[in-house]
Write a protein that binds this DNA or RNA. Structure first.
Ligand code: FES
Ligand code: FES
Lengths: 131, 131
DNA sequence: TTTAATTAAGACTTTTTTATCTTAAATAAG
DNA sequence: CTTATTTAAGATAAAAAAGTCTTAATTAAA
């Protein structure tokens, strides 16, 4: 959301500055952003005037993508009870329930872009931190 | 599900036996069942011929109840981003999304009883374990 | 070309969660 | 009443996750 608000293309935003603005540990934030960079959502640059910036336009990045990157690509493929393998071959008792809910969740998360949330965040002054 | 299958009322089922049937550590299973007993879903008896049994009929126990007991009573009241307090006073960027999804999840989980799942489990031979 | 600034990567530490073990309490049967 | 059996509760241990720190690599600017 912080980055979405900085709608300038073609420039990097310092993680240090972001961490101070959001009151998040610098090292923690750096680690948190790494998978997004690795998966091509962001692009980073080291050295002076370095930082991170969107590679994909936030209009094109869905919540679904972010969830899969942060929670693991098979977040929606695993058994709700934690059993090995989730599928019709050997369904567990809640498999049907989970499939129903899963499709709703995936549809919802896939329909929302970072830009959509970002816009709302800044027009409605939604909070990004506790204090 | 194991207990639901034992549709005899008025009798206790040994946790030891259950743990062997399901190939779950006895101590682990005992601990897992304790909150259900404490919250009045099950009733237990110590001593010879002791064990656990349903106190509430499985027809009257919803998945929602089980989730709240096992995951904590405010599982559906906390902020999706982990911020302190979730509510309209100080909503976070995904608050709206979360409220929408939450109501769907709660409705779904509240509409399903243990008996419903249990019946399906045993008519369709659904699995309760990995091997 | 050197230096300062900045992220990346991996090691390390701390915290939290999960699992196990030990002891206590309860109950039925002999 | 005593003993064997069984769950409860709490302590301990192990594993996993989260967070921090150190060092390396990259880059722009002087
Ligand atoms: S097998 Fe358990 S949710 Fe699919
Ligand atoms: S404030 Fe974050 S989900 Fe409600």
């Amino acid at each position: 959301m912080y980055l979405v608000s900085k709608r300038e293309k073609q420039r990097y935003f310092s993680i240090r500055e972001m961490s101070e603005t959001l009151d998040i540990s610098f090292h923690f934030l750096t680690k948190a952003l790494q998978p997004l960079t690795q998966k091509g959502i962001l692009v980073s640059s080291r050295g002076p005037a370095g930082g991170v910036s969107f590679l994909k336009a936030p209009e094109e990045v869905t919540l679904m993508e972010i969830i899969l990157i942060l929670e693991g690509e098979d977040f929606f493929n695993s058994c709700m009870l934690g059993l090995d393998g989730c599928g019709l071959q050997r369904p567990c008792p809640v498999h049907g329930v989970w499939m129903d809910i899963k499709s709703i969740l995936m549809k919802e998360f896939s329909s929302i872009s970072l830009a959509m949330i970002g816009d709302k965040t800044f027009t409605q002054h939604l909070r990004l931190m506790n204090v």
